[in-house]
Simulated scan of single mutants.
Amino acid sequence: MTHPTLTRPGHTSDRTAALEAIVLGLAAGHPDTTRQAVAQLGPVLRGVYDQGDTAWQAGAAADFLAATLYASPRFYLRLHAHAVGARDSDLHTHKGTVSSTVLCGDLVNITAAPAFTPASQAGALDVWQCGCLADGSHTQQRTGVRAVIDPQEVSHDRLTAGQGFTVAPGDYHRLTISPDPAAPTVTLCLFEWADPDAPDAFVLTGRPTPVVADRDMTTAAARAAVRQLLDTSY
């Protein structure tokens, strides 16, 4: 899906240079470079806040709004403002590598390594191939493959401000966002461009179809979360 982008390569602005440095710091994947990158976000966050409602778009089938900060042939960088108490309904993959850093609030990243089988098995989940089209609509197609998850192999990692996680292609995860309305959750997400012909995502579900999340997040709540982040951390 195409989002409004605050800055694209080729502009000779200070913000462009700052965003490129932030992207390189996040892409390095080292805690020190990530901290340095996050520390430089103040002017970028103020730009998002000042842009108002037009900075925010709904993209993936989850309850958050995204502001796209930067796009290049290799990376794009987005700010995600999550609805309080939001919960991904299903384990899913991403098209390319996604590295997320919690800027404020907290979340639980739930991961699992399913075993796949073509046969029907008690407790097995259907594997769906899902996509997001340019107009924001979603496609869903059952693959005919089934997945079994060992509950002993499911991990729940609670992450707070300054902590993060990476989802590589083929990794299954889902998020649960803090229900505390006084501490909204905002994340910084770096996406590495993938093969354009690769599926957008695979989703595991026991329901008749994967669930597209209700859209409870509003632009007013997203702006309020960024304002609080600016007031408390920058």
Results as ranks from 00 to 15, higher is better:
residue 105 G to I: 04
residue 75 F to W: 01
residue 12 T to V: 13
residue 134 A to F: 00
residue 120 S to D: 15
residue 27 A to W: 05
residue 189 C to I: 08
residue 213 A to G: 04
residue 160 T to I: 10
residue 162 G to R: 02
residue 105 G to H: 07
residue 163 Q to W: 02
residue 204 L to P: 03
residue 172 Y to S: 04
residue 155 S to G: 11
residue 160 T to H: 14
residue 229 L to I: 03
residue 194 A to P: 02
residue 40 Q to W: 06
residue 214 D to I: 09
residue 46 R to S: 14
residue 29 G to F: 01
residue 186 V to N: 07
residue 122 A to F: 00
residue 93 T to A: 12
residue 162 G to A: 04
residue 4 P to V: 08
residue 215 R to L: 10
residue 69 L to T: 08
residue 25 G to F: 06
residue 141 Q to I: 10
residue 115 A to V: 15
residue 68 T to Y: 06
residue 152 Q to K: 10
residue 40 Q to G: 14
residue 162 G to T: 09
residue 2 T to G: 12
residue 228 Q to V: 10
residue 167 V to M: 01
residue 195 D to M: 07
residue 224 A to K: 11
residue 101 T to W: 04
residue 206 G to L: 03
residue 11 H to G: 14
residue 132 C to R: 13
residue 137 S to V: 05
residue 102 V to D: 10
residue 67 A to H: 09
residue 87 R to P: 05
residue 123 G to M: 04
residue 101 T to V: 15
residue 128 W to P: 09
residue 219 T to Y: 03
residue 142 R to V: 06
residue 37 A to L: 05
residue 187 T to Y: 00
residue 83 A to V: 03
residue 13 S to V: 12
residue 81 A to K: 02
residue 160 T to V: 14
residue 113 A to M: 09
residue 76 Y to L: 13
residue 166 T to Q: 04
residue 116 F to A: 12
residue 219 T to E: 10
residue 104 C to M: 14
residue 56 W to R: 04
residue 146 R to W: 06
residue 79 L to I: 03
residue 77 L to M: 07
residue 84 V to Q: 09
residue 148 V to R: 09
residue 42 G to M: 07
residue 36 Q to Y: 06
residue 193 W to I: 00
residue 99 S to T: 15
residue 221 A to D: 13
residue 186 V to K: 08
residue 166 T to I: 08
residue 188 L to H: 00
residue 181 P to Y: 01
residue 174 R to C: 15
residue 131 G to Q: 10
residue 22 I to D: 02
residue 47 G to N: 06
residue 49 Y to F: 12
residue 62 A to Q: 13
residue 117 T to F: 06
residue 46 R to N: 14
residue 118 P to W: 01
residue 196 P to V: 08
residue 66 A to P: 09
residue 215 R to S: 06
residue 183 A to T: 15
residue 221 A to R: 09
residue 208 P to R: 03
residue 224 A to Q: 14
residue 103 L to R: 00
residue 115 A to N: 09
residue 208 P to Y: 04
residue 13 S to G: 15
residue 168 A to G: 00
residue 204 L to F: 02
residue 17 A to S: 11
residue 100 S to P: 08
residue 123 G to V: 07
residue 145 V to A: 11
residue 5 T to I: 15
